[in-house]
């Protein structure tokens, strides 16, 4: 028991080499998902009728495909039609597209819950639509979407081991390499689990801290 514990502790530094890549995958995927997600959310609310249909189909498709399948399509499938992406870019595209569909829902919900009166109030003061979006809608939407965004970030973080499937050296891959030489799968995978768990907590509390900085009465977001 003690030996196992020691073995886990001594191998955590080796596995930590994979942490950076896991974080990179998560941050890049979330960023891609955020850019597309915000665009999709705005188009679905403010876009033309046809545009709304197009983005609805987009959301519908990408929420319905497992990330691993999407990842394989991007990494193994697209090269056959001449689109070659490296493993890292493929993972970011796969996780990012999937996340964009979920993030779009988060932002859309946030914007819709702000209500049309806020926009009217801004316009009635003589502000332009853009000014109202920027000074009134956006600051509220950011606050309202923070809890959902935090959730989505941690989900993508926990999906990042999928990168293993296309041979990226992240935490799980380093673990596999160790197991091949040590034959201690239980200890090694447990060590991987601990690392992910700690990472999860770190980001969870980071976002909670950010939320508390943005908190004003009426937007109790840090507790959630």
């Amino acid at each position: 028991m003690l030996a196992s514990l020691l073995y886990i502790l001594t191998n955590i530094p080796l596995l930590l080499k994979g942490v950076l890549i896991a974080v990179e995958i998560t941050v890049c995927s979330i960023a891609l998902g955020m850019v597309i997600g915000i665009l999709v959310a705005f188009l679905k609310i403010y876009g033309s009728k046809n545009m709304k249909k197009v983005v609805s189909i987009y959301e519908w498709v990408f929420r319905g495909i497992p990330q691993l399948v999407l990842l394989f399509i991007v990494y193994f499938g697209l090269p056959t039609i001449g689109l070659n992406f490296g493993p890292f870019v493929s993972v970011v595209i796969g996780l990012g597209l999937c996340s964009s569909a979920y993030q779009a829902q988060i932002y859309r919900g946030a914007i819709l819950s702000i209500g049309s009166e806020q926009m009217e109030a801004g316009l009635s003061l003589g502000m332009s639509k853009f000014q109202t979006l920027f000074f009134i809608i956006l600051p509220q939407a950011v606050r309202l979407s923070l809890p959902g965004f935090t959730n989505e970030f941690t989900i993508v973080l926990k999906d990042s081991p999928l990168a293993y499937a296309v041979g990226i050296a992240e935490i799980l891959k380093y673990g596999r390499d160790l197991i091949v030489t040590s034959f201690k799968p239980f200890e090694i995978y447990l060590a991987c689990a601990i690392i992910y768990f700690v990472l999860f907590q770190l980001f969870y509390y980071l976002f909670k801290y950010i939320a508390s900085r943005f908190e004003v009465p009426g937007f109790l977001i840090a507790d959630q």
């Binding site: 009166e117 806020q118 009217e120 109030a121 801004g122 316009l123 009635s124 003061l125 003589g126 009134i136 600051p139 509220q140 606050r143 004003v216 009426g218 937007f219």
Partner: peptide, 16 residues
């Protein structure tokens, strides 16, 4: 619109 003030039923104050 600057010359026309409007007061809303549900106040519509900027909540943040």
């Amino acid at each position: 619109r600057q010359k026309i003030g409007m007061v809303f039923q549900h106040f519509a104050l900027f909540k943040h």
